[in-house]
Amino acid sequence: MAEAEENTVLHIADIHKSFGGLHALSDVDLQVKEGTTHAIIGPNGAGKSTLLNVVIGRLIPDTGAVVFDGEVITGKTPHEINQAGVARVFQTPEIFSDLTVFDNVIVPILSKRDGSYKFNPMAKLSAQKEAHDEAMKLIADFGLKADDPSGSLSRGDKRRLELAMCLSQHPRLLLLDEPTAGMSRHDTNSTIELLKKIKEGGMTKVIIEHDMHVVFSLADRISVLAEGRIIADGTPEEVKANPVVQEAYLGG
């Protein structure tokens, strides 16, 4: 296992994960530095989503460990990992589609405030002043409407809503699984602007993306995954120039 370097927020250490005979991840070792945007790219089936699932506790790796903020989080439950400061945007938006936009955004704020369990059946939701104001501000920032039923939002708005939900928790680490998949060029660009703005706030991000335009506009560092192995790792320029990557992924 490679030693964690300085300023490392997330250290994915020698992860190996197989499903039956399929080696989804082999010896994956990755360090994400504080405040950076780290992109993971690779062809379909390279193991990118599996890797994120390992980080958030949905999958347990066969060997290796995930260290977040100096603490091993492998084997912890998803809610514990979220409470530690990791939030994730999914490939298909995971929102509360039969609640309003407002309820969608205030739920994560309450989780951040109250922890993983709180029994307060006699408290009034409408009296949670701070949480209410915070949610309203975020909804306005994202150009959404608080009273809209979230189930009938457009796909792009659903993605934006999910991003707002994740940001409302002020996570230390934000994982984005193809945040612009299926978006129009215009929506993609506005999402890039949004993510750049978040970047200025110093939040660390790991982003999985197919769209090279998005990757090269956002990433400080890129790791290339192919057949479950990291085949290249470096700054965007280094990765672009790497002949192995060109052959495996960028198509020469």
Binding site: F96, I106, L110, K118, K124
Partner: peptide, 13 residues
Amino acid sequence: SPFGLVLKGIKSN
């Protein structure tokens, strides 16, 4: 209550 909203959240997703 916030507790009730969490229950609705569980139902939804």
